[in-house]
């Protein structure tokens, strides 16, 4: 008994630095956010009488709902794009690279080594009115005037997000592919599966945990992103993150910003839960 108790104690003392940081860095601001969302902005100060007026306004005014929906849609698209593009890369390194695997992984995550802002600006250069793509296409004579939909559009935001978050998709998918026992693949072949069926019945289900973590790792942070849409989105590409940022900035309505942040968080949490349940259900149905 004594031993068990001291073991538990030790576990908590080892955890304590993390717990303290979590408490200070996450729970406290979260608490402040919740409390603030029930306040009202009065000039440069707050009316601290609790009210649900902010939540009422958020549900009544169509702009908030529309932006939220668009944010979820855009980051969903970015997530799907990233996962679909990165899965083959992770698969390639896991199964077909036999030497210097680490080098390949490092190279694939190279974009992640530069600052986020820099990456966004780089895409601005690539996609811009007289950017790399447009001037290239004009030089070879495929188009006569620059394509305008490239920059300042939802597509630009989705492309940039997909590129910027690639590392987060490759790494978990690589890990789950890498640890698949090769003899399982041989066994599937031995039992009559060609390459396609073997992939669908063994490789894909066994790498699903990696795909799921990649999906969540990208979807959750990109939904609330405001830098990329601000710089590349144009009017069509504005996301809920931009609105929240404005509430804390130019609009100067902190309680409303807090309310929107919490609504965004709840939406993400709900979608995540539905996603987890759905994949669990599908996985059970497959096996």
């Amino acid at each position: 008994m004594m031993l068990q108790k001291s073991e538990t104690l030790r576990a908590y003392s080892l955890l304590s630095p993390t717990l303290i940081i979590m408490a200070i860095g996450i729970l406290v601001p979260f608490g402040i956010l919740i409390v603030m969302s029930f306040w009202t902005q009065v000039g440069f100060g707050f009316d601290m009488t609790p009210t649900v007026a902010n939540y009422e306004m958020a549900t009544e005014r169509p702009i908030y709902g529309a932006l939220l929906k668009r944010s979820l849609w855009m980051s969903g698209m970015a997530t799907v794009t990233t996962v679909l593009l990165c899965y083959p890369m992770a698969y390639f390194v896991a199964f077909h690279v036999h030497r210097n695997k680490m080098l390949w992984i490092v190279l694939m995550t190279l974009p992640f080594w530069t600052s986020y802002l820099l990456r966004v600006f780089a895409w601005k250069v690539v996609l811009g009115y007289d950017g790399v793509i447009n001037s290239a296409l004009m030089n070879i004579g495929l188009i006569e005037k620059p394509l305008e939909f490239l920059l300042y559009s939802q597509a630009a935001v989705i492309i940039t997000l997909a590129h910027a978050w690639a590392a987060f998709a490759i790494l978990p998918m690589y890990v789950s592919l890498e640890k698949i026992d090769r003899s399982l693949l041989e066994a599937a072949t031995d039992l009559g599966d060609g390459p396609v069926m073997r992939f669908l019945r063994i490789t894909l289900p066994l790498s699903l945990p990696g795909v799921m973590s990649a999906t969540l790792l990208i979807f959750i942070p990109t939904t609330g992103d405001y830098i990329t849409p601000a710089l590349l989105g144009g009017p069509d590409g504005v996301m809920i993150g931009n609105l929240i940022q404005k509430q804390f900035g130019a609009v100067n309505n902190w309680p409303m910003g807090a309310t929107l942040a919490i609504i965004l968080m709840l939406s993400i949490a709900m979608i995540t839960l539905v996603f987890l349940f759905a994949t669990n259900f599908v996985r059970k149905r497959i096996s």
């Binding site: 003899s183 041989e186 066994a187 289900p205 066994l206």
Partner: peptide, 9 residues
């Protein structure tokens, strides 16, 4: 197979 290669899922 030597390690039996039973499909874990």
């Amino acid at each position: 197979f030597q390690n039996y290669a039973i499909f874990p899922h």
